[in-house]
C-alpha cells in the first residue's frame, strides 16, 4: 500500500470519528439550549420520569442487592488473608456509594432505557412520526429528546441512591447471616465510615450517567437508518455508546473528585 493509501486509511476513520463527536456535541448543545426555553412539556417529563425512574427500580434494586452481597463475601475472603475481616461494612459501603452503585446502576439503566429510547425514536423516525411532529409545528428535539434527557438526569441519581441503600443492605444481610457479623455493629461501622461526599459524588455521577444514557438513546434513535435493520443498529449503537461513555465518564469523574 502506498504512503498516501496508508494516510487515507488512518485519516478517514479519524475524521469520521471527529465528525461523529461533533454531531453528538451539537445535538447535546441543542438539547441544553432548549431546556430553559418555552414551550415546556411537563406531561412528557412526568411520563418519562415514570418510564425511566420508577420502572427501572426493580432492575437497579436487584442488581444492587446481589452486588452488595457478593461484595461482602469477596471483601471478607480477601480481608481474611491479613486479618482484616472487620473492614467488610465500611468497604461495602464505600464501594457501593462511590463506584458500584452509580456505575452498575448507570449500566443497567443504559441497557434498559437507552435501548428503549433508541428503538422508540428510531421507529418514530422510520414511520414518519418525527416528520409528522414537524408538520404539526412541534420541534421533535424539544418534544421528544428534552423531556427524556431531563427525566433521566433527574431520575438516575434517585435510582443510584436507592441502589446504594439496597446494595449496602445486601452486604449487611450477607454479613449477619453468612459471616457472623453483629447487626448493630455492622450498621454502626457503615454509618460511621461514610462521609457525605462519598454519597454526593455517587449521586453526581448518577446525574451525569443519566444524561449520557438519554442523550445516546435520543441521538441514535433520531438518526436511525431505514427499516428494521436501521432501528436495530441504532438500538445497539445507543447501548454500546452509553455503556462505554458511562465507564469513561466514571474514570474522569473519579479523577476529578478523589485525586485532587
Amino acid at each position: 500500500m502506498s504512503p498516501a493509501g496508508v494516510l487515507r486509511g488512518i485519516g478517514r476513520p479519524v475524521l469520521e470519528s471527529l465528525a461523529a463527536i461533533g454531531r453528538v456535541a451539537i445535538f447535546a448543545g441543542t438539547i441544553l439550549g432548549h431546556l430553559f426555553r418555552p414551550p415546556f412539556y411537563p406531561r412528557e417529563v412526568m411520563v418519562q420520569l415514570l418510564q425511566i425512574g420508577w420502572f427501572s427500580l426493580p432492575v437497579v434494586g436487584l442488581t444492587a442487592l446481589f452486588t452488595g452481597g457478593a461484595l461482602a463475601l469477596q471483601i471478607y475472603s480477601g480481608g481474611a488473608r491479613f486479618n482484616a475481616e472487620s473492614v467488610v461494612p465500611s468497604i461495602v459501603a464505600i464501594g457501593m456509594v462511590r463506584e458500584l452503585g452509580p456505575v452498575l446502576g448507570g449500566l443497567m439503566v443504559a441497557a434498559r432505557v437507552a435501548s428503549s429510547i433508541a428503538a422508540e425514536l428510531g421507529t418514530m423516525k422510520v414511520t414518519e412520526q418525527i416528520d409528522a411532529l414537524v408538520t404539526l409545528s412541534t420541534n421533535p428535539i424539544k418534544y421528544l429528546a428534552v423531556p427524556r434527557v431531563l427525566a433521566a438526569t433527574l431520575a438516575v441519581p434517585v435510582l443510584v441512591a436507592v441502589g446504594d441503600s439496597i446494595g449496602i443492605m445486601g452486604g449487611w444481610l450477607v454479613g449477619i447471616t453468612r459471616l457472623d457479623f453483629n447487626s448493630a455493629v455492622y450498621i454502626k461501622n457503615t454509618v460511621d465510615f461514610l462521609e457525605v461526599w462519598d454519597v454526593g459524588s455517587g449521586l453526581v455521577k448518577g446525574a451525569v450517567f443519566g444524561f449520557i444514557v438519554a442523550l445516546m438513546g435520543c441521538y441514535h434513535g433520531m438518526n436511525s437508518g431505514r427499516g428494521a435493520q436501521g432501528v436495530g443498529r441504532a438500538t445497539k449503537s445507543a447501548v454500546v455508546a452509553a455503556s462505554v461513555l458511562i465507564l469513561a465518564a466514571n474514570y474522569i469523574l473519579t479523577e476529578v473528585f478523589f485525586t485532587s
Partner: peptide
C-alpha cells in the same frame, strides 16, 4: 416564520404516522 407557515398546512402521511403513545 416556521410556526405560522406550518400552521397553514395539514398533511396525511402514507402510513398515517399516528403517534403510538
Amino acid at each position: 416564520e416556521r410556526d405560522a407557515f406550518l400552521a397553514r398546512f395539514g398533511m396525511l402521511f402514507q402510513g398515517g404516522a399516528l403517534f403510538d403513545s
